[in-house]
Design a protein around this nucleic acid. Structure first.
Lengths: 331, 331
DNA sequence: ATCATTAATGATTGCGCAATCATTTTGCAA
DNA sequence: TTGCAAAATGATTGCGCAATCATTAATGAT
């Protein structure tokens, strides 16, 4: 009782194998009666096409490869939802690769996904190795980078300016009258570094920048880390009256730590987060944050690839960001 | 400049194609000099095996298929991390399918992943359609169900008792002296129904059960829904003095709503969550919850499949749960 | 040196499907 | 009717690899 093939279906339906193939792939090119016979045979035998054989014969896959740094980071699950929605109701399937924030690992995993060539590749960030770029060029597959901007994308890029976003957030805090503003950062990947740069620029412009105001770690961002980093900040920069956090997790951790210490938000301490991950709009007080187009970047990147990597348009799509000003920064 | 094949590598190295294949797949069966020549040729040409051709010829894949209800639910990202870690340093790759909590969709997506047959399949829950079970039986691939328990698993199952876990949580609240305990539930999938059953049993045992105490919705669980459901609960069951929440998101939403309304936790209201998703250990006050073996279920299921779906052991693995008693339930 | 044994390498074939080209059937104008 | 285009169906071939079997080279015991 082996798996049925096109030949088996053909025998069952009394036609040739290639005709079955045609009936399944382009039903409109086949007579009604034949289509009915073939459909019946397919159902009776429970025929399912062999993906490998199909791919080998046609040298066409139906997969989109997405390389993301981490599955357990909410930032990327939002992006993935966008991609998934874009691929819904198409024949394309998603192949997810995990880079662990390491370009070398990205290269290794991606290489194994590149033969046979997928229909498209989505990469997070712009820090690919030269080898990776070379590989992708050789394969000639459409590539969309996401999460950042670049004047020299591999192919196309959909993102926003982390530096501008952080710059805007920091300026918002300055505008509200905070004058000793700290920066908390976890998972200091290149995009986080850009946020730090934007923050620094805003404070320098205002003549407020202080070295002690920056506390970062390379550990993954979570609520607990936020509290820990805030503890360090208050130690080394006691006059601190506001913090800009790299990620909403951290901001929430800061808020909780303030509650534990009896620090009033926003009067004694202003807080601004990043990414608008959901909880910040619900907690008490609500936390101001930067809404970043996570879902939309995924959806747009997916759409570009569904449309065949349309090269005509702009190579760089800036989806922007918006300040979500809530209570934690309004003193 | 087409993609190099085994033949190309063979020419470059001055040997036959099949020898190259052997040198790559079983280096120990080949002379040192040959191995060196082949490796050099592979590197020079950038050869990458064609996965489809390999699979077709050997009728062996190197993929594990995981069907989960939703990517954007933290519960499943923890499970996925476990699976990923189990597969790390093996040749197996992960193919993730999204069911949207719909057994029919699960069947449809899984079918497309089943030819060629993967090395193993991981399914969330035990609500597969008969068709799905039939399909899996025909293909003969090892199956591990997760997230629940069952005396009649398709093959093997790794999980814990949702009913027992909720029963324990409810009893904890009863023990602490709460006597009008509500149940809040979102995403009322079959496992959530079991939690509700466990909750109901505990309250009935204590002679405390009240119909008005149960407020549920089928919408996905999030913090905001927690606040909304709690609002309904207080309306229809004003004497309520504790809530057990289906998921930590809801519990956090309840805590925030209490802060907004000035309800003191745990004195005026006790709260217990479910899943121990991380934030509950950090907020103020910390929220008691049921720690469920999310990561471990993934890791165990992955390990079983890496080991070839070892049939010798128990078909059912109960990984248990534990009460994480924190401040929100200690009045 | 001879032969047996083992190690190392090669030739042929088929996996299941789709591209390509070939053939048969149908519809319909004259 | 006849003829001919268009529609419908079929036969052959090869995608890139690994299974299988065949051959050659190396090793060592006598």
């Amino acid at each position: 009782m082996t798996k049925p093939t096109l030949v088996d279906v053909g025998k069952e339906a009394g036609v040739s194998a290639i005709t079955v193939s045609r009936a399944l792939r382009s039903p409109e090119k086949v007579s009604d009666s034949l289509r009915a016979k073939v459909d019946a045979a397919v159902r009776k035998l429970g025929y399912v096409p062999n993906q490998s054989a199909s791919t080998l014969a046609s040298s066409e896959t139906n997969s989109i490869v997405v390389m993301i740094p981490s599955i357990s980071n909410n930032v990327f699950t939002d992006v993935l939802r966008g991609i998934e929605d874009a691929l819904k109701h198409t024949r394309l399937t998603l192949q997810i690769g995990n880079t662990g924030y390491d370009p070398i690992e990205e290269e290794r995993v991606l290489r194994s996904f590149l033969n046979p060539a997928p229909k498209g590749v989505i990469l997070a960030g712009i820090e690919q190795t030269n080898e990776t770029r070379q590989m992708l060029a050789n394969v000639g597959v459409p590539v969309v980078q996401i999460m950042d901007l670049s004047d020299a994308p591999i192919d196309q890029i959909v993102g926003f300016s982390h530096e501008d976003a952080a710059f805007a957030a920091a300026n918002h805090l300055i505008d509200k009258g905070y004058c000793n503003i700290g920066f908390l950062g976890a998972q200091m990947d290149p995009r986080s570094q850009k946020r730090l740069a934007g923050f620094r620029k805003a404070l320098q412009n205002a003549g407020m920048y202080d070295e002690r105001a920056v506390v970062v770690t390379n550990r993954p961002s979570d609520v607990n880390i936020g509290a820990i980093l805030f503890g360090k900040l208050t130690t080394q920069y006691p006059e601190c009256d506001a913090v800009f956090c790299n990620n909403d997790d951290l901001a929430l951790g800061v808020l909780f730590e303030c509650q534990r210490r009896g620090i009033r938000v926003p009067t004694e301490l202003g807080i601004c987060g990043f990414n608008d991950l959901g909880v910040t709009s619900q907690c008490v007080p609500t936390i101001s944050t930067v809404r970043t187009p996570l879902y939309d970047m995924g959806a747009k990147a997916g759409k570009i690839l569904v449309d065949g990597g349309a090269g005509a348009k702009d190579r760089q799509v800036d989806l922007g960001f918006s300040l979500e000003i809530r209570n934690s920064s309004l003193r």
